[in-house]
């Protein structure tokens, strides 16, 4: 029996879909069998970020309404051999096409076959959110160091605490050390004490993430990227390893320090 994790944020545009795609790929790279479920019915994106959009035949609503078997709708990602699957959302209808009970039984079915089921939640706290949370065993809240994103994360954590699931964990996305040092953005400590939930990891802001999303290749495929490392670390933490938090200072080594570190080797 696998574990179903919902990835949510309340606010839109903080990187839920990117996080789902990258965490799923990272878990699959670690050898786990992973299924990604896009519950953003009517505004599906997860297939694009994974580069699987042209291979969709059936979708989530087709499965729920019995037009196809679940395995017919699953799209396999060939880059990660037989480990990563996507259940795409429908594009032609809206969130009310599915009920929380239907989602729950769907996720139950997927959990029997997969070790991890990652549910990509739509923005907002309405029907789409309730559908996404219905089948989940635990939750990951994604936020960015912006006051509006943190406020919405606070609201969503309050709602998640009323559900019968494990306490939610936090991912801080698009971390920019320069802004935090200047005091122009909330720092990691401030965000975690304000929200007071466990920090699962941070993702450093990086333009390559956007570029790779546009290409349909999750950034975790690139082992040398800072953001990619963040996602890989989070995947390892989900698997139960204890990985220390990335130090932010390193990325700002001056030339002089770099020289010292080269000579001291």
């Amino acid at each position: 029996m696998g574990e179903a994790i919902v990835i949510t944020s309340g606010k839109g545009g903080v990187g839920k879909t990117t996080t789902t795609a990258n965490l799923g790929t990272a878990l699959a790279l670690q050898g786990k069998k992973v299924c990604l479920v896009d519950t953003d019915i009517g505004l599906r994106n997860l297939d694009l970020v994974l580069g699987l959009d042209n291979r969709i035949i059936y979708d989530l609503v087709d499965v729920v309404e019995g037009r196809c078997k679940i395995h017919q709708a699953l799209v396999k990602d060939k880059r990660v051999d037989d480990k990563l699957f996507l259940l795409p959302a429908a594009q032609t209808t809206d969130k009310n096409a599915v009920t929380p009970e239907q989602m729950k039984s769907l996720i139950e079915e997927l959990k029997r076959e997969f070790e991890y089921v990652l549910i990509d939640c739509p923005a907002g706290i309405e029907q789409g959110y309730r559908n996404a949370v219905a089948g989940a065993d635990s939750a990951i809240v994604v936020t960015t160091p912006e006051i509006s994103a943190v406020r919405d994360a606070d609201r969503i954590i309050g709602l998640l605490e009323q559900e019968q699931i494990d306490p939610p964990k936090l991912i801080i996305n698009r971390v920019r050390k320069d802004l935090m040092n200047q005091g122009d953005a909330m720092d990691i400590n401030e965000i975690t004490t304000h929200l007071s939930i466990d920090l699962l990891g941070i993702i450093i802001d990086c333009e390559d993430v956007i570029a790779s999303s546009n290409k349909g290749e999750p950034i975790v495929m690139d082992p040398n990227n800072k953001a990619s490392l963040g996602y890989r670390n989070i995947a390892r933490r989900i698997l139960g390893e204890s990985v220390p938090l990335m130090t932010l200072e390193e990325q700002h080594k001056g030339v002089f320090r770099k020289l010292i570190s080269i000579f001291s080797k």
């Binding site: 406020r151 919405d152 606070d154 609201r155 309050g158 605490e161 007071s196």
Partner: peptide
């Protein structure tokens, strides 16, 4: 006992002690 988060309302007929924070909009 706990954090009163954004959008939550805690009501009491008499006095109340909150063991935790009251976040903005709570």
């Amino acid at each position: 006992v706990g954090i009163v988060r954004s959008g939550q309302v805690i009501q009491a007929p008499g006095d109340i002690i909150i063991v935790g924070d009251v976040n903005p909009n709570g």
